[in-house]
Each structure stands twice: as structure tokens, then as C-alpha cells.
């Protein structure tokens, strides 16, 4: 009986959504809004001239990846808030799952796991660092880079009995978060706006371009990686 009612309710919801399709644009035929056009041409204050790869210089924001320039530059205050939400949830996990000892099995992990972690872990960490250092040129950035590093830390936890990172992760996380705010305050002192891009932005497509975007993304990468490995460390303790 309960299942029938649940099925009816969810079918009604699906029908409601399908009905509301008429006010949505057709799939694949969306028009770019004015805001998106301004973000793509990287001139929110200017006159919307076209950007060309490898030639355009000294734009508002020099990141070749438009998504990165929205996340870290134009809507950076938003990202600061989201990083704070992530910090709060990691703090909540630490508060709820209080415990002191790291969980042990009393026997060594699998031989294949132990050996292959030694080979794979440097590659995984290197890939994570690559993803967030090149966040303004290629797909990726601080958020996926941080999670890739956290996945590497999870592998370390699985393969090593004595490994414990919780103190280091708290240290790295708090310093990266504070440095993000310090970058914003420096922008406030130089340009008059919190988190303004105060460094020269360079040519679109160079590794050393885009002003503060790579710096902020590296900080976000460290912060997200440290927070998620802290969550894993908390789940590994026994209370």
C-alpha cells in the first residue's frame, strides 16, 4: 500500500516537471545571457570585445578556462562562502565522531596493496597537483585536485597501519584558508575591492598568467584536500 502511494506521488512529481518543460528553453537551443557573454569576453566593465587565444593581453582576468575565471575571479566571494561551508561540515564530522585511537586490524594489509601504493601514490599526488596548478588552462582546478589528493591519502590510510595525518591536515587547512582571506585583504588594500585581481594578468594561455587565479586555486586545492583527508581520518578513528 505504502509503495503504491509513493509511486503515485513520485509519478505526479515527474508529470509536474514534464509539464513545466514548456516554460524552459528547448534542450540544446539555449541563448547565452548577457552576463555569460560578459564573462566569456572577460569584460564585465568594458565594451565586450572578443578575446583571442595567445594574443589578447591585460584583460580583466587572464584565465583561459572561463569556468575557472568565474569561480575564482568574478564570483570569488561566493567560492569563499562555499569553502566555509565545506570547512563547517568537516568540523561537524570531527565534532560528532570524536575519538582518539586510529582503527587497526591487528594484521598487515595485503602485500599487493602495500607494494602498489608505493608505486601509485606519487603518481596520484603528482596528478592532483598538476590538476590544480593548471586549473586556469585546462579542465580541473582546486576542487577536483583536492579530492584527487584526498583519494591518495585514503589509499595511504588503507595500506599503512600506523599512518595518521589528522594534525597535519588541520594545520594545512587552517593556513590555506587564512591565506585565501589574506589575498582578499591585499586586494582590498591595493584595488579597493575585496578579492580584486591585483596582479598583472598577462597573455591568455600562458602558465604564468591570470594574476591571482592560480594562487587562489592552489590555496583552494590544499584546503579541500586537507579537509577531505581530515574527514577520512575522522571516519577512521574509533571512539
Amino acid at each position: 500500500m505504502r509503495r503504491v502511494f509513493a509511486l503515485l506521488i513520485s509519478l505526479g512529481l515527474i508529470l509536474f516537471f514534464v509539464n513545466s518543460l514548456s516554460i524552459l528553453p528547448e534542450y540544446g537551443n539555449v541563448e547565452l545571457s548577457k552576463v555569460s557573454n560578459a564573462y566569456i569576453n572577460k569584460s564585465v566593465n568594458g565594451n565586450n570585445e572578443k578575446v583571442k587565444f595567445g594574443e589578447s593581453k591585460d584583460l580583466e582576468d587572464g584565465a583561459a578556462n572561463v569556468v575557472t575565471s568565474i569561480v575564482v575571479d568574478y564570483r570569488s566571494f561566493d567560492t569563499l562562502g562555499e569553502v566555509t561551508v565545506l570547512f563547517t561540515s568537516a568540523l561537524g564530522v570531527g565534532l560528532i565522531l570524536h575519538g582518539f585511537k586510529r582503527k587497526t586490524y591487528g594484521r598487515l594489509p595485503n602485500f599487493i596493496l602495500r607494494v602498489s601504493v608505493g608505486i601509485l601514490l606519487p603518481l596520484i599526488l603528482l596528478f592532483g597537483v598538476y590538476v590544480f596548478v593548471h586549473g586556469h588552462l585546462t579542465p580541473g582546478g582546486g576542487f577536483p585536485g583536492g579530492t584527487i589528493i584526498a583519494a591518495g591519502i585514503l589509499l595511504l590510510y588503507l595500506s599503512n597501519e600506523e599512518f595518521d595525518l589528522s594534525k597535519t591536515s588541520k594545520f594545512v587547512e587552517s593556513y590555506a584558508g587564512s591565506l585565501y582571506i589574506v589575498v582578499g585583504l591585499v586586494g582590498l588594500a591595493i584595488g579597493g575591492v575585496f578579492l580584486i585581481n591585483f596582479l598583472p594578468t598577462g597573455v591568455v594561455g600562458d602558465l604564468f598568467s591570470a594574476g591571482i587565479v592560480p594562487i587562489v586555486y592552489i590555496l583552494i586545492g590544499f584546503k579541500v584536500g586537507a579537509e577531505l583527508s581530515g574527514v577520512i581520518a575522522d571516519l577512521y578513528r574509533e571512539g
Binding site: S33, S36, V51, K52, F53, G54, A64, V67, P139
Partner: peptide
């Protein structure tokens, strides 16, 4: 939505 060698001029989906 990434400026690169293959897409030097903007012809992008909505990045927002």
C-alpha cells in the same frame, strides 16, 4: 568553454 589552440575565438556553451 576553454580558450585553447583548437578554439581560439569564443564559440562556447554557457559557462555559468
Amino acid at each position: 568553454p576553454i580558450y585553447s589552440k583548437y578554439t581560439p575565438v569564443a564559440n562556447f556553451v554557457d559557462p555559468l
